[in-house]
Design a binder for these strands. Sequence first.
DNA 1: ATTTTTTATTAGCCAAATCAAATTTATTTA
DNA 2: TAAATAAATTTGATTTGGCTAATAAAAAAT
Lengths: 219, 219
Amino acid sequence: MTLSNAEENYLKAIYALTQENRERINNQAIADRLLINPASVTDMLRKLDEKKLIEYSRSGGAHLTKEGFKVAVKTVRKHRLWETFLVEKLNFTWDEVHDVAEQLEHIQSDKLLDEIDKLLGHPKFDPHGDPIPDTNGKLSRINSSPLSEIPEGARVKVVSVGDNSTAFLRYLDKQGISLNGTILVKEIQEFDQSILVEIKGKKEVFLSAEASRKIFVIK
Amino acid sequence: MTLSNAEENYLKAIYALTQENRERINNQAIADRLLINPASVTDMLRKLDEKKLIEYSRSGGAHLTKEGFKVAVKTVRKHRLWETFLVEKLNFTWDEVHDVAEQLEHIQSDKLLDEIDKLLGHPKFDPHGDPIPDTNGKLSRINSSPLSEIPEGARVKVVSVGDNSTAFLRYLDKQGISLNGTILVKEIQEFDQSILVEIKGKKEVFLSAEASRKIFVIK
DNA sequence: ATTTTTTATTAGCCAAATCAAATTTATTTA
DNA sequence: TAAATAAATTTGATTTGGCTAATAAAAAAT
């Protein structure tokens, strides 16, 4: 059974909300994420329930079944592999990949997916540092912390970003912050929690608390 | 203005029929090609006419406008570049590429298209020997002839095939016939026009007249 | 324990792209 | 030229995935 793009997008949204471990995956949350009217969500959730891709009830919200989980994970896997491909092989920058990957993730071809994966050497993380699920849906984990929690004086490495929007990624580029780059925390401003950092041993810049919460790093 | 897959497919079909220089591109021909009901074609042709992508009238049939031509050609270009990519970079065989390329041709991203083209070295022909339109819609031409018109004794090179169906392409594989391969015409059977050929200086096989009309060759 | 607020659902509607069946218009052919 | 055939169109329906506005139900606050 091959699903529509819309169905795959709903499953992906439910998967993402599950990952963020919300107590309850409700109608509104899905609507917000997909920029869709809650009334439409009701209909689709019912349809997905009928197709046994989710279990849905008004009280309990939506939960992926084993089958739905498989579809969702595969879609995410495709999205992230395509993003990696675009950056690694086609000279895309990390802020250019999202929209194209949103389209490419719906292409149906197992061989295509396998070959892209092979060509890339079975990558575990995408250009934003997000883990690429393996074929069983297993995710590689890195025990990272938001930059906002790093004490003064510590030198850390960027491993992922918590916001893949063009605006944020371009901002990071401008600051010289990139995946695997080094950041030295020089000074935390008490009054607003903004931080002064040294990027790659060179430039010194101020980062807002907001930004520092979206940059994940390890020692 | 970005068009739906359906719209792009209609334009592509009209383009293809134009290439085959039919006197008149009628409803039925489009319906046959897209496996769609003629009643549906009427509606869509009207819509495309309204959008100034074609000029359509009951008497005159359908003709691409400059704008419609651009869209059609770009779609064909995408299709053939993707086919080439799949074969050259992802280990697909020429009989595996069509269905995937039918999906990929609708991905909207100029950068993606340009980068794939660059990665492949700006190829002029796809894995079936069909020309890849350049950005202006210009096609490279090879003055080939169907194998059915080659006289006994001639040694020729395969440059394209006139049927991209899985069945036909697999049949050619089985016979050892591939793009750029050499064929020596040994004997033309008078009664049914089937031909005995020598493939790549080795194997001898019989080809039906039917098949020989779909294999295009040059001296 | 009510009232208020938030969330979900219903009802009715729309657009895109298709279909089948009936009808109209064109084209052949007798 | 009239009848027969072929092609195109109309009509009315369907499916998919949306929408808005009104209502119902649940949760939170008073």
